[in-house]
Computed example of a mutant assay.
Amino acid sequence: MWQKVIIPFSVSFILIGCSEPEPLVEPSTVYQCAALTLTATVTDTGLDIQLPDQSYALVETISASGARYRDDDFAIEFWSKGNEATLIINGEPFPLCIEEGTLPTSFSARGNEPFWLASLTGQTLTMREPGSEQELTVEAPRLVEDEPIMTWSIAAEDGLNLMILDQYCQDSMSGQSYPYTAYLGREGEKEAGCAGDPRQLLEGVTWQLAQTASEQAPTIQFIPESNVAGFAGCNRYRGTYQLTGEGLQFNPLAATKMLCDETAMAVEDEWFRQLTEVQSFRLDAAGELDLVLADGNVIQLQRKN
């Protein structure tokens, strides 16, 4: 007869210590809006925008394309498409924002001796040289080096290759300043040039006079659509400017009519006088702005904190 046998056994429980889960880090994207750095962070409720001196919490809104966010009062709007974004605060548009580590979808590069102009729009590169113009299909910009200088390669269908370096450049003939350095490679030769929109070096920050006798230094902001605004030492002013391949000039400026002490008024008069004589600009080794006058002297400006 079968007999049921019970074999005793023991069960050991191993207690595994559980630690608190680490909080999730929300994905952030850093943009360069000309000279301004902006960080956008996706949240459960929308998007947080971080500027050097301010932050905003936005909610998502309906968009036909891209991702669009706003605040409750519709005073702030951020709209991203691909690697580019626009920011509007209280009706004032900021410069076009480009995702860090990428290039604008449209820009131009140029070189001298021999002259060439390459205009990129999407995946079409238009090459202009004396007596000729052609459209080439190119690959998307490819980041080939990120240290010490970010470098992108744009290869065309006929073996032409355009290299773009994230490095300040001055045109060898006009002296105009550009945000990128360019090299055009073809048939084993490499021709140097500059690339990008000079406004990327000017817009996005407030520049203030580096040295002044006034308690409050004159300032200037370069605003999209060739506008300027600032403080002259006593009064605030607005106006427009012209930026060409040859240089920079200010159109007549309109100012308020307040009266201040003699020192402030003297600083203001000199500020306006010098702005009428500006012919070009350049960045110094520290990245500060020099407005170059007709006589070769400069107005030295620094970023306002």
Results as ranks from 00 to 15, higher is better:
L201M: 11
E262P: 00
A118N: 06
Q302T: 10
E129H: 00
F281D: 01
G230K: 05
T105F: 03
D71K: 05
R273H: 13
I220A: 06
S132P: 04
F115P: 02
A34H: 05
T219A: 02
N83F: 11
N251P: 03
E262M: 08
T256C: 06
G193R: 01
V5L: 11
V5P: 02
G159A: 07
A266V: 02
N83S: 15
E270S: 14
A67H: 10
P52H: 08
V292N: 00
G230Y: 02
T151G: 04
N83M: 10
I299P: 01
F222V: 00
Q211S: 12
A40H: 01
Y31S: 09
C169T: 07
Q274L: 12
A118R: 00
C97D: 09
F94M: 08
N112P: 02
S12E: 15
I6W: 14
M163V: 08
C18M: 14
A40E: 01
V267C: 05
D261N: 14
Q242M: 09
V42F: 05
D295V: 01
I49Y: 00
N235W: 04
E189D: 13
G175T: 06
D284A: 03
L96T: 06
N297C: 03
C33E: 06
I16Y: 14
L87H: 05
R282A: 15
G188N: 04
S153W: 03
L293Q: 10
S153D: 12
R238N: 14
A266R: 13
D73I: 00
F107Q: 05
L184C: 00
Y180F: 15
L136F: 05
T256A: 01
A155M: 08
S65H: 11
I164M: 04
